[in-house]
Design a protein around this nucleic acid. Sequence first.
DNA 1: CTGAAAGCGCTAACAT
DNA 2: ATGTTAGCGCTTTCAG
Lengths: 353, 353
Amino acid sequence: MLSGREGVRIPVGTRQRILDAARELGYRPNRTAQSLRTRKTQTIALIFDTVGDGHYAGEMIRGALETALERDHLLYIAETANDPALEEKLLQEMVDRQVDGVILAAMSTRTARLSEHMRRIPTVLLNCLDASGESVCVVPDEEAAGRQAARLLLDAGHRDGVHVVGGHPATGGAHEGLSVGELRMSGIEAAMAAAGTRLAGTVECDWSAPEHGYRATRSLLESARLPTAVVCCNDRLAIGAYQALRESRLRIPDDISLVSFGDSGLPSWLRPPVTSVDTPHHELGAKAVSLLLADEPAPAIHRLPMAVNPRGSITACAPDPREAVPASTEPGAIRSAQPRPLRRAGAHGGGHG
Amino acid sequence: MLSGREGVRIPVGTRQRILDAARELGYRPNRTAQSLRTRKTQTIALIFDTVGDGHYAGEMIRGALETALERDHLLYIAETANDPALEEKLLQEMVDRQVDGVILAAMSTRTARLSEHMRRIPTVLLNCLDASGESVCVVPDEEAAGRQAARLLLDAGHRDGVHVVGGHPATGGAHEGLSVGELRMSGIEAAMAAAGTRLAGTVECDWSAPEHGYRATRSLLESARLPTAVVCCNDRLAIGAYQALRESRLRIPDDISLVSFGDSGLPSWLRPPVTSVDTPHHELGAKAVSLLLADEPAPAIHRLPMAVNPRGSITACAPDPREAVPASTEPGAIRSAQPRPLRRAGAHGGGHG
DNA sequence: CTGAAAGCGCTAACAT
DNA sequence: ATGTTAGCGCTTTCAG
């Protein structure tokens, strides 16, 4: 009766008294014994390739944890460090402890190789796909994200002066053969085309560090026609872009608009805060858990929408940008050449980038 | 015999044959059954108050995981979001699953309140202390960190021009009644005193965002006597300081030296990289696990040394800074007034801050 | 419809 | 020194 057996006929008062007594005595069913019998442990393994700088992982963990808790499950966590042997060992340990399912999470979207274990236990791939296409996968919808970013700019009137910093690097993983960069670019281009226009240009560069964004943006500013808006393919590039723009005395968003794809939570430290299309880490983690715990984990790729976070780095663009923003070939002093060493100590004073 | 019973007399060949067969058949002892019998699960609960921005947590998790794995344990993870009710529930769930021990980790050092559960199960407090002083605690040695930071500067010849940005805010937790800021300041002051000198000044400010560091540093630069070196109490303040220095055309480390206390992994993105005294997240996690798994978890506070990471933001200081750095009351143009809008596209091009 | 009994797979205590 | 047995605390099956 304590285990919740149905159809028991006990006076309601008595029943309640029993339950109360049980609680008062601090009775807790022994989950280990339950598990031995039912072969279910109410636990899930969350295995990362690498926890990385943590931000990505942090939100994912939170999302997964919340959903798991709602469904009365607890989370194991582990990290493979991209070591196949370690991955195998961890998977084995998890299986030994009879986890009810495994979530294999990758920090940067890529194609995963499936271990044997994963054919014998419910598995969800998080932020990665497998070659066979027989797995349940959860990934951000990068192509839609590209369209979202472009729409932000288009809706503000930017049509002819939109440049991209980042582009389609070969590095990084793939969704169905396409890299994150390719997908985002494809989305951006599609949205521009749908609006009857196209990108003014794309600077292809490494996404890994701010300095690449800095250099790419500088090269943009040296061109004959100044951009009205720049799309940065990730946060690090955006930091570099901020730096380059600040050095050129171009103000955001007054002189130029900026959109970024957020993946690190860093944009909130930029001044002014950058409007970005952010990877839904939290939702990815939550979705992975709920799929794992669903009755029929039908093989499929679940693409989650990215979140648009307007933070004021976009300004309406005049119909003809040539009148609003005069072109310049002088890299040294594009706009106000006035040196303003110790500027603004106000609310935005901590500005950087 | 499979469970490793001692004193069994079996021909060596046979013994090996059995083991081989077992492996070939894929035999794995059922850990759940083991646990039911032995009341040990080879698992540890790692419970954070908040995973925060993740960096802190990421390294801690890694450290804990490595050590746990070495000792054949797996890690549960959870987050209480500083909600006592949730903490209680999670603790209960962990106890129900018979974890062998609990690590209670705080993101920012503070004093913890002990739940009843923790008196009945081995517990280690990570990055926090409890009022009773009866727990096993692992914390960074903040006072030593202060001395380390000061020594870096003193060894480079900085004696009379060292300023601190941050100070001793009342906010944040405490080690034996002292906040992180108080401890660090105390260490800095002790080291300066030991060297026969003292701080030129301290700007007390909020540690939470770059803009406070920016403003504090600006105020420093407006004073009559220019600092030869600045100590920033955390990464965010350092970012703000970088920004202020850059706007003043002061070069790091040529014109001014900088040291920071690292807590976010962010310093690596600053140009030039900032020399910092870093919280040993990884070691904290590892130590917590090994203490938890030790035979006698004697109540004690374990202070772990912080790691010094020289990254080139400190330069030797002339014996008399007054000759090396002329004072100025003009905030507008302290040093080279030359506007250099699009500077250096080279290796350090991505610089920001 | 309800109570009793038989295990889940292992380890520890027990006889041989 | 080795083989045997009795549970760990629960769920499920099977009689009653």
